[in-house]
Simulated scan of single mutants.
Amino acid sequence: MSELDVSAIPAQPNVNDPAVYDWYRMMRDEHPVHRDPVTGWWVVYRYADARHVLTHPETFSSEMHRMGFPETGLESLPQMDPPRHTRVRGILSTAFTPHSISEYEELIVRTTNEIIDGFIGKDRIDLVADLAYTVPIAVILEILGLPAEDRHLFYDWARKVMGVTPEEMAQPDFAEAMGRLQQEAITYLREKVRERRNKPGDDMLTRLANAELDGDRLTEDETVNFANVMFAGGHISTTMTIANAVDLFDLNPAAQAEVRANPELIGQAMEEVLRHRPPITTGLRASTRDVELAGVMIPANQHVAASFCSANRDERQFPDPEAFDVHRRSEGRHFGFGFGTHHCIGNALGRLESRLVLKVLFERFQEIQVDRDAVGWALPPQMVGFDSLPVALRAA
């Protein structure tokens, strides 16, 4: 076990500053486990160590209420350990079958084309506001069976929750403030879940409200909370992934030309987008005991954050990790949608949406050029991507 000499560690650049990747490399080499001086979190930078944290829930728990995170009375899948997590995820999986997800392909393509039709004729748009945000939120509202006119409600709720900073999490009144933020969305969704149990419809919310495995069903609280997580986490991650893909292909024109010429490469290329620039920066856990990792002793009851951005660029796992290589095969290994027990249950839908939106974009526009002087990076430190991405368009 070693003592860390942290006196010479420079401050971390912003997660959306390309300089951060040199900083991550330095941390992997010299300080692979490091207690962040601002948040107090123990951050894990190497791939193997991050994977260990994400696959050992008995030592690194997802039950964040241990650390003062809010307990709303709901059972939250992302904040749940086995065996409870195993039970709930098993029931949810009956509503998230590969067949049910594939049924949404026509919806996604139709929605994307309709939204693009709305700005055809313009030579410049904000790709985030006009497409990368609009498509996922419209799709998920229709999938859940919720009114399209309620789109603004969910956008506001999601942005408030995703906009919480690590410094705010460390404040003594964080749990109370977060509980207030979530309550409005929870109240809305509870009403809709009760409606679906009394009067089923042909939508995902009905499937969730009535999902069953071996006679076991989700409680109302479990259904409400998962619908909330599905909406907030699902559309934000997909929005970031779509915008990141457009940006990375603009930065790598040879890769873009190859994918345009060979559309069958899009699925694999999107995996490289998720590895190269994962939409969520970290997977947060709580240590259940004193544990040694990479020669560093982490005390019990501490925040432990697996750095997805650093682990996905770890040269010990990925050859030439800084290269954007659309031929790289990394699905099942990168942390673009988390890993292990909490690998995102909605990842198939997110992958399908991202892949189809990019395919339609390449079919409808022969040129999509990012205005690099006008981009607006996402502000919350746990997201990697854009608040705005102005692009010039040339129709095909």
Rank of each mutant, 00 (worst) to 15 (best):
E367V: 00
L248A: 14
I186M: 14
L131E: 02
P172R: 12
L144C: 14
V259G: 00
A392E: 03
E271R: 00
V224P: 06
H52P: 02
F69C: 03
V375L: 15
W157K: 05
H327I: 04
I345Y: 08
G163D: 03
E258G: 01
R66K: 07
V6T: 15
S100V: 08
F154R: 07
M169A: 06
T112N: 12
L293H: 06
V15S: 01
L127I: 09
G336W: 02
S310I: 13
A243G: 14
L218P: 01
H334T: 01
E149S: 15
E114K: 12
T59S: 09
M230D: 00
T55W: 06
E331K: 13
F335D: 09
L293R: 05
S237P: 06
M270E: 00
D325Y: 10
L54I: 11
D22R: 07
P380I: 15
I91M: 06
L74D: 10
H85K: 02
L389M: 14
Q79L: 12
V375R: 07
V164M: 09
V6A: 14
R196C: 07
R196P: 01
A177W: 05
G295M: 12
E363I: 10
F324M: 12
V304K: 13
M64F: 03
R28P: 01
A255I: 04
E212G: 02
V6D: 13
R207F: 08
T341C: 00
T223I: 03
M230S: 10
E191R: 15
A245W: 04
R217N: 11
T111I: 09
N210K: 08
T187S: 12
L153S: 01
M270C: 05
V43D: 04
E30H: 13
N14V: 03
D49C: 03
I143Q: 06
L189G: 14
D314Q: 04
A11I: 03
T165L: 03
V326P: 08
E292D: 07
P321N: 01
P278W: 01
D214R: 13
G346W: 01
H152W: 11
T72M: 14
